[in-house]
Design a binder for these strands. Structure first.
Lengths: 186, 186
DNA sequence: GTCTATAAAGCGATAGAC
DNA sequence: GTCTATCGCTTTATAGAC
């Protein structure tokens, strides 16, 4: 049965999409109101801290999603190779093969980084450490695993930039294929 | 002797820095006025098209700089290996070892991409083709060179994202070292 | 060519009725 | 919890004096 009264969490996906498409400065409250279907008054009822709290909540939800679906399996799954394989599948789907921007990466480049330094850093640190842990479980030395994890994260972010610049999903697909190979060999 | 009357070109570096730090939406005319030391009236005298023309001119100048210092040597220098070596040196200096954002990359991720699609794409296409041409002159097959050039560009952009997220120049330095090695071997 | 004053619109945020 | 109306401020852009 459909819910009449909104919950804070129900608003986050629509808000995330607005921030992804317009950035922090470009995402106006009017636009967020339009895209969530909720009036300004209601938005400020759920987020008294205004736009900054909205973006903060979105980043929180993103980190939670990645923790559940990607970071945790990488950290703890007994089958590390399978966890890495599922990471790549999840990444391709989540970023829609490069058509969807990584909000955290976009925030890292923009002035909004200064507002959300901690959350931006936390997201990438968790990802890097989880991936490195999986690589160690696959038999690699810790320093090599750290270096490799950093390389993979940079390649993902970089190919998201290029995929959007060229408007070409193939760029992202090629990058993912190469990364799987790089991780597989050596 | 100091020039009293400003020239359009003299304003571009300061404007570029403002756009880099605040993004397109975040860079207000008031801020640009403050940082260029020129009143709003004068700014609109040089750029009747307003902020969009200012950002467009900045992108133009960036492409011209890269063409002169990086793309042209990659395309035409008889010593391709040396041109690539100088590309890495220039990139490290230009991006201040990862502390300075790539404005074109930031625009590619942001909503401003839609305004500047052509210029964003042109920048990356020129870079990729010039680098691939140098790799071909070094003896690589064309398809391999194309793929490798794409990998290098993505790694540069991605490590700029990570370097800013972690606020750590070492991330960028490690990436450049690895890329030099990757290009050298095989 | 440079400036100040100002217009018109949009912004984030709040108040208060329901 | 949701809405409309509104405040105060900043925004882009223009007009016009010098």
């Amino acid at each position: 049965m459909a819910k009449i009264v909104s919950e804070r969490a129900d608003l986050l996906p629509a808000m995330a999409e607005v921030f992804r498409e317009h950035g922090f400065e470009g995402a106006s409250i009017a636009l967020i109101s339009e895209r969530t279907g909720l009036g300004k008054g209601s938005l400020y009822h759920f987020f008294p801290g205004g736009k900054e709290e909205m973006a903060g909540a979105v980043l929180e939800e993103i980190e939670a999603w990645f923790t559940t679906h990607i970071f945790a399996p990488l950290q703890w799954d007994s089958d590390a190779a399978s966890a890495i394989d599922r990471m790549f599948r999840a990444v391709v789907e989540y970023f829609d093969s490069g058509r969807r921007v990584c909000l955290v990466g976009a925030f890292a480049l923009a002035s909004s980084r200064d507002r959300f330094t901690k959350q931006v850093r936390s997201y990438f640190r968790m990802w890097k450490e989880a991936l490195a842990a999986a690589l160690v479980r696959m038999g690699r030395d810790k320093p090599v695993a750290d270096h490799l994890a950093e390389e993979v994260l940079a390649a993902i972010q970089g190919s998201l930039v290029l995929a959007r610049a060229f408007d070409d999903r193939a760029v992202f697909a090629r990058s993912m294929t190469r990364l799987r190979r790089v991780i597989g060999e050596r």
